[in-house]
């Protein structure tokens, strides 16, 4: 069997776009505009989701919104374990996050360990007024007490499944797939 046969499309391009617009509106509503907010995407796909959110927010409010990119590799809790070495791509946050409401963006919320790493890194970079979490998909199976503030879609999954977020910038399409893993 090849890969395509084992995966089901859960979200197509049009729903993907609608979800991002809804997330943008929810962020605006909660923060009463964009004045004190900054969007920070977690590499790799969180970065592109963050870019899209910033575009939408800028259009809606006609004001620029600061955008940053976080590489959480140096804060991972599994670096001592013996698997392939992650490639460092770097963190680029060119503004001071202190006293800003930082919206952290990632594609899939799963164990919560990536978000834990991101939180540690953010507090080393400054002291934001608040950190909020926006994800495209929440698939459950948390291993840490972490909860998203803005969720595109909740997708109940088993541990033998994988949620795959595809984005035009990297994968030629906007879509979310559910994949069965066979060991």
């Amino acid at each position: 069997m090849n890969e395509a046969e084992k995966r089901t499309k859960l979200i197509d391009e049009r729903d993907f776009g609608r979800m991002l617009i809804r997330l943008a509106h929810e962020i605006l509503e909660r923060n009463r505009g964009t004045e004190h907010i900054a969007i920070v995407g977690i590499r790799t796909r969180g970065e592109f989701l963050a870019r899209r959110l910033v575009e939408t927010l800028t259009k809606l409010e006609s004001k620029p919104v600061p955008l940053g990119v976080l590489d959480i590799t140096l804060y991972r809790d599994d670096l001592r374990e013996k698997h392939a070495q992650p490639v460092l791509q770097g963190t680029y946050i060119e503004f001071d996050i202190t006293n800003k409401h930082v919206i952290l963006v990632d594609d899939v919320l799963f164990t919560g360990r990536t978000v834990r790493s991101a939180l540690s890194e953010l507090v080393d970079l400054g002291r934001p007024s608040s950190i909020q979490l926006a994800v495209l998909v929440d698939r459950g199976h948390r291993e840490l007490p972490i909860k998203a503030d803005f969720v595109g879609k909740n997708i109940p999954t088993s541990k033998q499944q994988e949620v795959q977020v595809c984005m035009k910038e990297l994968d030629n399409e906007d879509a979310v797939y559910l994949k069965e893993l066979h060991d």
């Binding site: 590489d71 140096l74 791509q89 770097g90 540690s120 080393d124 970079l125």
Partner: peptide
């Protein structure tokens, strides 16, 4: 290059 950026941070230390 990544570590050069870390050296510009207010907290110049990572838990790696």
């Amino acid at each position: 290059t990544t570590f050069r950026e870390v050296l510009e941070r207010p907290v110049k230390k990572v838990p790696t």
